[in-house]
Every structure is written in structure tokens, then in C-alpha cells.
């Protein structure tokens, strides 16, 4: 049974695209067939984070409008043969996405893949509501910071009311993914801790991604962080989260950087 999972947040810049790429790659590394779909019409970036920006020919809107067939628009990842990308349009009017058209594309993707990961644009407008519209599950990306938590709460309300599942009286399975977490700062009371966030959002946790330079390094070179350096702390956290999505029981820990002897001597200033 194919699963449609929306990666959403309300707030921009919290790591939706990074998380979509990393979770998509991690699921594919785990043997699943995966497509990541960019819903950010006009501001596409998933292609760039996946390193496929020069291979985009057709996009989601072309497929919705019937200009291109789905197989013509799908881009196969160069590193993982069971990972695919459906890019967003960069120029066209975002009203070109229709509920009915998106429904058709999602239905066709369901017949081809195990996982359909929808990378939502920020905000609560049309693009964001269409990205979540057909979702079975949702990953709500949240930073340990007040504005992000507030927007996540709003998005959770929308997942419970504006999705096809909600309208049918069914549930969208929701998970919180906390990104840019700094355990040391949380321990000092300088940052909301995991329990605070989960209590406020009343939604179960799927993973904790520690703040790390490896995330920027990976996007610089256009490789999902789980492929770029699978041993890095954020990559291990994303891989754990992907295993939980597949239904495995994985102990919830915040992976730490594995520091070399010199780095340890020099402390965090060295990082």
C-alpha cells in the first residue's frame, strides 16, 4: 500500500525541503521506492537540494495540465535507483495547480511508488493546502523556537480539518520532527526542550535532528544529508526517523557529533 506523506510546517526556513530530501533518501536507502514531490510552485528548491536542478525538463504543473506524461516529468536520482523527484514549476502561475489535477497525479504516483513525499511550501495558502490535501501521514517540521511551534500548531489544525482524510472522518497520522535542536542549550534552559514542544503540540515525535554543519554541507553539494555523510549526526537522526516511519521501533536519542581527538581538545569552538 502506497503512503502519501506531507512534509509541512507553516513557517518557512525550518527545514522542510532538507527533511523531505533526507527522509526520501533514507527511505530509499532502506529499500523502499520513493518519489519526492515539490509543491513550492514558483520557488522550487527540492531539485537543488537533491542535486537534480540541471535535469528538470517537465514539472508537476505540466503533468497536472496534461502537457507532459508523468514518466516524462519524473527524474531518477543518480545515486539511488529507487528514488525519484517530481519537480515544481519555477515560473508558472501557482493557480495552475488544481485540487482535482493534484488528486489525479497523486493517484497515479500511488500506483508506482511505496512512498510519495510531498514537500509543502511555507504558509497556509493554496500550495500548502494542496500539498497536504491527499496525505495519509504528515511530518510537521518544528524548530525549538516560539514562532515555529505556533505555526506548527496551526498546521496541525489544518491537517485535522482540510485534508481529504479529515473530510471523510478519518485521521491523518501526524508526527513532529524537531530540527536544529541543540541539546546543550536546551539543558541550560536557553531553548525549548523536547518535552515542552511535544506537550504543547500534543503530537507524537518521529525524530530529533541536531543542529549541525553537515546539513549545510550536504545542501551545498546537492546531496541529501543521509547520502552525503551517512555517519554524521543529522544523517543518523534522519535514518532513525525513516525507520520509525516504516514502523520499526527505534530508541529516541539525539545523535551527537563524533568528534576526533583534536576537536575534543579544542571543544565546541573547533566545530
Amino acid at each position: 500500500m502506497a503512503k502519501v506523506l506531507v512534509v509541512t510546517s507553516g513557517k518557512g526556513g525550518v527545514g522542510k525541503t532538507t527533511s523531505t530530501a533526507a527522509l526520501g533518501a533514507a527511505l530509499a536507502q532502506g529499500g523502499q521506492s520513493v518519489v519526492v514531490v515539490d509543491f513550492d510552485v514558483g520557488l522550487r528548491n527540492l531539485d537543488l537540494v537533491m542535486g537534480a536542478e540541471r535535469r528538470v525538463v517537465f514539472d508537476l504543473i505540466n503533468v497536472v495540465q496534461g502537457v507532459a506524461k508523468l514518466p516524462q516529468a519524473l527524474i531518477r536520482d543518480k545515486r539511488l535507483e529507487n528514488l525519484w523527484l517530481l519537480p515544481a514549476s519555477q515560473t508558472r502561475d501557482k493557480d495552475a495547480l488544481t485540487d482535482e489535477g493534484v488528486g489525479r497525479v497523486i493517484a497515479e504516483l500511488r500506483s508506482r511508488f511505496d512512498w510519495i513525499l510531498c514537500d509543502s511550501p511555507a504558509g497556509i495558502e493554496r500550495g500548502a493546502t494542496l500539498a497536504m490535501r491527499y496525505a495519509d501521514e504528515a511530518v510537521i517540521v518544528t524548530n525549538p523556537e516560539v514562532s515555529s511551534v505556533r505555526d506548527s500548531d496551526r498546521i496541525i489544525g489544518m491537517l485535522d480539518s482540510k485534508t481529504v482524510r479529515a473530510e471523510r472522518g478519518e485521521r491523518v497520522e501526524k508526527h513532529v520532527l524537531i530540527t536544529r535542536y541543540d541539546p546543550a542549550r536546551a539543558a541550560r534552559g536557553e531553548m525549548l526542550n523536547i518535552d515542552d514542544i511535544l506537550e504543547i503540540l500534543a503530537t507524537p515525535l518521529i525524530g530529533i535532528i541536531p543542529e549541525s554543519q553537515d546539513v549545510l554541507k550536504a545542501s551545498n553539494v546537492g546531496t541529501p544529508v543521509t547520502l552525503n555523510n551517512a555517519d554524521s549526526a543529522p544523517a543518523r537522526a534522519y535514518i532513525d526517523a525513516s525507520r520509525r516511519l516504516m514502523g520499526e521501533e527505534v530508541a529516541m536519542v539525539v545523535p551527537a557529533e563524533r568528534k576526533g581527538f583534536m576537536n575534543r581538545l579544542l571543544g565546541r569552538r573547533a566545530a
Partner: peptide
Amino acid sequence: NASAPVARERL
């Protein structure tokens, strides 16, 4: 510097 409890309460 424990500002997190303030954040939590405001939220």
C-alpha cells in the same frame, strides 16, 4: 538565562 520556561508559558 533560562528563557525557555518563558517561551513555554507564552506559547
